[in-house]
Computed example of a mutant assay.
Amino acid sequence: MIRTVLPLAFFPHETLMIFPLVPNLEGQYVLRKLALVVGPRRGGKPDREPQGSPENIRGPSTGTSAAFA
C-alpha cells in the first residue's frame, strides 16, 4: 500500500499540476489506485454501532388493528 502512493511523495512535480491540490493524469491514476487499495480494507463497516434498541431506531410501531375496529 505504501508503494502505491510513493510517486506522490517522490515525484510531486510529475504527478501534481498545482502542488499539493490538483493531480494531473498520472496523479489521478495514483489516487485511484489508493482508493482501490484502501476501500476493500474498510469493508463497508459503519463507523460505530447505532445506539439504543431497534424500536428507538425505527420509531414506535403503530398498530393498524385499532384503526379498523
Rank of each mutant, 00 (worst) to 15 (best):
M1S: 14
I2F: 07
I2C: 07
R3K: 12
R3T: 14
T4A: 13
V5D: 01
V5M: 03
L6T: 07
L6E: 10
L6V: 08
L6Q: 13
L6I: 08
P7L: 00
L8C: 02
L8P: 00
L8M: 03
A9L: 11
A9P: 01
F10T: 12
F11K: 08
P12Y: 14
H13Q: 13
H13D: 14
H13G: 11
E14D: 09
L16H: 06
M17E: 15
M17V: 13
M17D: 14
I18H: 11
I18Q: 13
I18W: 09
F19W: 11
F19L: 12
P20I: 10
P20M: 09
P20C: 09
L21F: 04
P23L: 03
N24C: 07
L25S: 15
L25Q: 15
G27I: 01
G27C: 03
Q28G: 15
Y29H: 09
L34H: 03
L34V: 09
A35H: 09
L36G: 06
V37A: 04
G39V: 06
G39C: 07
G39K: 11
G39I: 06
P40W: 10
P40N: 10
R41V: 11
R42V: 06
R42D: 08
G44C: 01
G44Y: 02
G44H: 00
P46G: 08
R48S: 06
R48F: 03
P50A: 07
P50L: 13
P50N: 07
Q51H: 06
P54N: 07
P54K: 08
E55R: 02
E55S: 04
N56I: 01
I57D: 06
R58E: 06
R58V: 14
R58D: 05
R58C: 10
G59P: 01
G59S: 03
S61T: 13
T62P: 00
T64R: 10
A66N: 11
A66E: 12
A67W: 08
F68I: 12
F68A: 15
A69R: 15
